[in-house]
Protein backbone atom coordinates (compact mmCIF):
# COMPACT_ATOMS: atom_id res chain seq x y z
CA UNK A 1 0.00 0.00 0.00
CA UNK A 2 2.79 2.48 0.84
CA UNK A 3 4.66 1.84 -2.40
CA UNK A 4 1.45 2.28 -4.39
CA UNK A 5 1.39 5.94 -3.24
CA UNK A 6 4.38 6.62 -5.49
CA UNK A 7 2.83 4.90 -8.52
CA UNK A 8 -0.60 6.49 -8.06
CA UNK A 9 0.62 10.04 -7.36
CA UNK A 10 3.04 9.75 -10.31
CA UNK A 11 0.30 8.57 -12.66
CA UNK A 12 -2.13 11.27 -11.46
CA UNK A 13 0.50 14.00 -12.02
CA UNK A 14 1.23 12.62 -15.48
CA UNK A 15 -2.47 12.75 -16.42
CA UNK A 16 -2.90 16.35 -15.21
CA UNK A 17 0.41 17.33 -16.87
CA UNK A 18 -0.69 15.95 -20.24
CA UNK A 19 -4.07 17.70 -19.89
CA UNK A 20 -2.37 21.06 -19.22
CA UNK A 21 -0.07 20.42 -22.17
CA UNK A 22 -3.05 19.73 -24.48
CA UNK A 23 -5.33 22.54 -23.26
CA UNK A 24 -2.51 25.07 -22.74
CA UNK A 25 -4.33 26.67 -19.81
CA UNK A 26 -2.83 27.10 -16.31
CA UNK A 27 -4.37 25.03 -13.51
CA UNK A 28 -7.20 26.92 -11.75
CA UNK A 29 -6.40 29.90 -13.95
CA UNK A 30 -3.19 30.87 -12.05
CA UNK A 31 0.10 29.38 -13.25
CA UNK A 32 2.22 30.65 -10.30
CA UNK A 33 -0.04 29.49 -7.48
CA UNK A 34 -0.41 26.13 -9.28
CA UNK A 35 3.39 25.92 -9.57
CA UNK A 36 3.62 26.29 -5.78
CA UNK A 37 1.09 23.47 -5.32
CA UNK A 38 2.86 21.24 -7.84
CA UNK A 39 6.23 21.92 -6.14
CA UNK A 40 4.78 20.88 -2.76
CA UNK A 41 3.37 17.73 -4.30
CA UNK A 42 6.74 16.80 -5.86
CA UNK A 43 8.71 17.35 -2.62
CA UNK A 44 8.19 13.86 -1.08
CA UNK A 45 9.55 12.13 -4.20
CA UNK A 46 12.59 14.44 -4.28
CA UNK A 47 13.27 13.82 -0.55
CA UNK A 48 12.90 10.08 -1.03
CA UNK A 49 15.40 9.97 -3.90
CA UNK A 50 17.91 12.27 -2.15
CA UNK A 51 17.79 10.33 1.15
CA UNK A 52 18.16 7.05 -0.66
CA UNK A 53 21.27 8.30 -2.42
CA UNK A 54 22.72 9.36 0.96
CA UNK A 55 22.02 5.96 2.51
CA UNK A 56 23.66 4.14 -0.40
CA UNK A 57 26.73 6.37 -0.14
CA UNK A 58 26.88 5.77 3.64
CA UNK A 59 26.54 2.00 3.13
CA UNK A 60 29.29 2.00 0.51
CA UNK A 61 31.51 3.95 2.90
CA UNK A 62 30.79 1.49 5.70
CA UNK A 63 31.60 -1.56 3.55
CA UNK A 64 34.80 0.19 2.50
CA UNK A 65 35.77 0.61 6.15
CA UNK A 66 35.05 -3.04 6.88
CA UNK A 67 37.22 -4.09 3.99
CA UNK A 68 40.14 -1.95 5.12
CA UNK A 69 39.58 -3.24 8.68
CA UNK A 70 39.77 -6.88 7.54
CA UNK A 71 42.89 -6.34 5.48
CA UNK A 72 45.30 -5.78 8.42
CA UNK A 73 43.92 -8.91 10.15
CA UNK A 74 44.66 -11.03 7.08
CA UNK A 75 48.07 -9.40 6.84
CA UNK A 76 48.73 -10.04 10.55
CA UNK A 77 47.77 -13.71 10.12
CA UNK A 78 50.09 -14.00 7.09
CA UNK A 79 52.95 -12.35 9.01
CA UNK A 80 52.35 -14.67 11.97
CA UNK A 81 52.34 -17.72 9.66
CA UNK A 82 55.71 -16.62 8.26
CA UNK A 83 57.19 -16.07 11.73
CA UNK A 84 55.84 -19.42 12.95
CA UNK A 85 57.38 -21.18 9.95
CA UNK A 86 60.81 -19.71 10.88
CA UNK A 87 60.52 -20.48 14.62
CA UNK A 88 63.06 -23.05 15.77
CA UNK A 89 61.57 -24.36 19.04
CA UNK A 90 58.33 -24.82 20.92
CA UNK A 91 58.99 -21.86 23.23
CA UNK A 92 59.39 -19.35 20.40
CA UNK A 93 56.26 -20.71 18.70
CA UNK A 94 54.38 -20.34 21.98
CA UNK A 95 55.64 -16.76 22.43
CA UNK A 96 54.53 -15.76 18.94
CA UNK A 97 51.17 -17.48 19.31
CA UNK A 98 50.41 -16.03 22.74
CA UNK A 99 51.39 -12.53 21.68
CA UNK A 100 49.07 -12.83 18.65
CA UNK A 101 46.24 -14.26 20.79
CA UNK A 102 46.39 -11.61 23.53
CA UNK A 103 46.59 -8.82 20.97
CA UNK A 104 44.07 -10.22 18.45
CA UNK A 105 41.42 -11.12 21.05
CA UNK A 106 42.24 -8.27 23.44
CA UNK A 107 42.58 -10.56 26.46
CA UNK A 108 44.84 -10.22 29.51
CA UNK A 109 45.92 -13.86 29.72
CA UNK A 110 46.94 -16.53 27.20
CA UNK A 111 48.67 -19.86 27.67
CA UNK A 112 49.78 -22.86 25.66
CA UNK A 113 49.75 -26.32 27.23
CA UNK A 114 51.36 -29.35 25.57
CA UNK A 115 49.34 -32.55 25.56
CA UNK A 116 51.27 -35.75 26.23
CA UNK A 117 49.14 -38.81 26.79
CA UNK A 118 46.57 -37.82 29.38
CA UNK A 119 48.56 -34.94 30.83
CA UNK A 120 48.61 -31.29 29.84
CA UNK A 121 51.79 -29.40 30.75
CA UNK A 122 52.15 -25.63 30.53
CA UNK A 123 54.63 -24.57 27.85
CA UNK A 124 54.20 -20.81 28.03
CA UNK A 125 51.86 -18.28 29.58
CA UNK A 126 51.46 -14.55 29.08
CA UNK A 127 49.71 -12.11 31.41
CA UNK A 128 49.36 -8.37 30.72
CA UNK A 129 51.92 -8.52 27.90
CA UNK A 130 54.60 -10.32 29.95
CA UNK A 131 55.64 -13.96 30.00
CA UNK A 132 54.86 -15.80 33.24
CA UNK A 133 57.70 -17.77 34.83
CA UNK A 134 55.61 -20.70 36.07
CA UNK A 135 54.01 -22.38 33.05
CA UNK A 136 55.80 -25.69 33.69
CA UNK A 137 54.11 -25.92 37.10
CA UNK A 138 50.74 -26.02 35.40
CA UNK A 139 49.87 -29.71 35.02
CA UNK A 140 46.38 -30.97 34.33
CA UNK A 141 45.37 -34.63 34.44
CA UNK A 142 42.98 -34.75 31.52
CA UNK A 143 41.15 -37.89 32.64
CA UNK A 144 40.72 -37.18 36.34
CA UNK A 145 40.44 -33.39 36.30
CA UNK A 146 37.61 -31.93 34.26
CA UNK A 147 38.75 -28.65 32.72
CA UNK A 148 38.54 -26.42 29.68
CA UNK A 149 41.78 -27.96 28.40
CA UNK A 150 40.41 -31.51 28.78
CA UNK A 151 37.19 -30.59 26.99
CA UNK A 152 39.11 -28.96 24.10
CA UNK A 153 41.25 -32.13 23.83
CA UNK A 154 38.41 -34.63 23.95
CA UNK A 155 35.98 -32.65 21.79
CA UNK A 156 38.77 -31.50 19.43
CA UNK A 157 36.90 -28.19 19.20
CA UNK A 158 37.13 -24.68 20.66
CA UNK A 159 34.98 -23.78 23.64
CA UNK A 160 34.27 -20.80 25.87
CA UNK A 161 33.31 -20.53 29.53
CA UNK A 162 31.54 -17.34 30.59
CA UNK A 163 31.85 -17.83 34.34
CA UNK A 164 35.04 -19.64 35.40
CA UNK A 165 33.97 -19.54 39.07
CA UNK A 166 31.24 -22.08 38.30
CA UNK A 167 33.54 -24.13 36.05
CA UNK A 168 35.28 -27.44 37.06
CA UNK A 169 38.04 -27.40 39.71
CA UNK A 170 41.03 -27.28 37.31
CA UNK A 171 39.83 -24.08 35.72
CA UNK A 172 38.85 -22.51 39.04
CA UNK A 173 42.39 -22.86 40.41
CA UNK A 174 43.90 -21.28 37.32
CA UNK A 175 41.24 -18.57 37.34
CA UNK A 176 42.03 -17.75 40.98
CA UNK A 177 45.78 -17.68 40.29
CA UNK A 178 45.43 -15.02 37.59
CA UNK A 179 42.15 -13.42 38.67
CA UNK A 180 40.27 -14.47 35.53
CA UNK A 181 36.49 -14.47 35.13
CA UNK A 182 35.96 -15.84 31.59
CA UNK A 183 38.03 -18.08 29.34
CA UNK A 184 38.22 -19.84 25.99
CA UNK A 185 40.22 -22.79 24.66
CA UNK A 186 41.18 -24.08 21.23
CA UNK A 187 43.11 -27.28 20.34
CA UNK A 188 46.21 -27.39 18.11
CA UNK A 189 45.55 -30.45 15.98
CA UNK A 190 47.96 -32.38 13.75
CA UNK A 191 46.35 -35.24 11.90
CA UNK A 192 44.12 -36.81 14.54
CA UNK A 193 46.28 -35.87 17.51
CA UNK A 194 45.79 -32.85 19.75
CA UNK A 195 49.34 -31.53 20.26
CA UNK A 196 48.51 -28.65 22.54
CA UNK A 197 45.73 -26.39 23.75
CA UNK A 198 45.71 -22.60 23.42
CA UNK A 199 43.83 -20.89 26.25
CA UNK A 200 42.86 -17.27 26.77
CA UNK A 201 41.21 -15.61 29.77
CA UNK A 202 39.94 -12.19 30.80
CA UNK A 203 39.69 -10.45 34.17
CA UNK A 204 36.30 -9.04 33.27
CA UNK A 205 33.41 -11.30 32.42
CA UNK A 206 33.18 -11.81 28.66
CA UNK A 207 31.12 -14.07 26.45
CA UNK A 208 33.41 -15.15 23.61
CA UNK A 209 31.14 -15.02 20.56
CA UNK A 210 31.51 -17.33 17.55
CA UNK A 211 33.84 -14.94 15.71
CA UNK A 212 36.21 -14.79 18.72
CA UNK A 213 36.28 -18.60 18.94
CA UNK A 214 36.85 -18.76 15.18
CA UNK A 215 39.85 -16.40 15.50
CA UNK A 216 41.20 -18.41 18.45
CA UNK A 217 40.86 -21.64 16.46
CA UNK A 218 42.42 -19.96 13.41
CA UNK A 219 45.45 -18.99 15.52
CA UNK A 220 45.68 -22.50 17.03
CA UNK A 221 45.34 -24.19 13.63
CA UNK A 222 47.97 -21.87 12.14
CA UNK A 223 50.49 -22.78 14.87
CA UNK A 224 49.84 -26.55 14.87
CA UNK A 225 52.07 -27.45 11.85
CA UNK A 226 54.97 -25.39 13.28
CA UNK A 227 54.61 -27.05 16.70
CA UNK A 228 54.42 -30.51 15.13
CA UNK A 229 57.64 -29.79 13.20
CA UNK A 230 59.55 -28.95 16.38
Amino acid sequence: PLASIFVCVGAAMAIVGVLVLLHREPLAGNAWVSLAAVSLAVLPAVLFLVRRGDRNAARRGHIGEEETGAQPRRERMATLAGELARAQDGESIAELLLAAATEGLEVEFASLALIEGTTATGLAARLDGRSLPWPGELQVDLERQPSGIATAVFEVAPLAVYDLASSPAGDRELAEAIGARSGAWAPLVAGETVLAVLAVATRGQRAFPAEDLALLQELASGAAPALERT
Partner: peptide, 29 residues
Protein backbone atom coordinates in the same frame (compact mmCIF):
# COMPACT_ATOMS: atom_id res chain seq x y z
CA UNK B 1 1.30 34.67 -22.56
CA UNK B 2 -0.99 32.48 -20.48
CA UNK B 3 -0.41 29.53 -22.86
CA UNK B 4 3.37 29.44 -22.50
CA UNK B 5 3.04 30.08 -18.72
CA UNK B 6 0.73 27.07 -18.45
CA UNK B 7 3.24 24.86 -20.24
CA UNK B 8 6.36 26.19 -18.47
CA UNK B 9 5.00 26.52 -14.94
CA UNK B 10 2.43 23.73 -14.77
CA UNK B 11 2.73 21.08 -17.47
CA UNK B 12 6.51 20.63 -17.28
CA UNK B 13 6.69 20.57 -13.41
CA UNK B 14 3.76 18.11 -13.36
CA UNK B 15 5.43 15.80 -15.87
CA UNK B 16 8.81 16.05 -14.11
CA UNK B 17 7.05 15.32 -10.78
CA UNK B 18 5.29 12.33 -12.33
CA UNK B 19 8.63 11.03 -13.61
CA UNK B 20 10.21 11.44 -10.13
CA UNK B 21 7.33 9.60 -8.44
CA UNK B 22 7.46 6.76 -10.96
CA UNK B 23 11.27 6.61 -10.59
CA UNK B 24 10.86 6.37 -6.80
CA UNK B 25 8.31 3.58 -7.25
CA UNK B 26 10.78 1.76 -9.51
CA UNK B 27 13.57 2.17 -6.92
CA UNK B 28 11.22 0.82 -4.22
CA UNK B 29 10.52 -2.16 -6.48
Amino acid sequence: SSESQAILLNAIPLLVGAALYLLSAGVLG
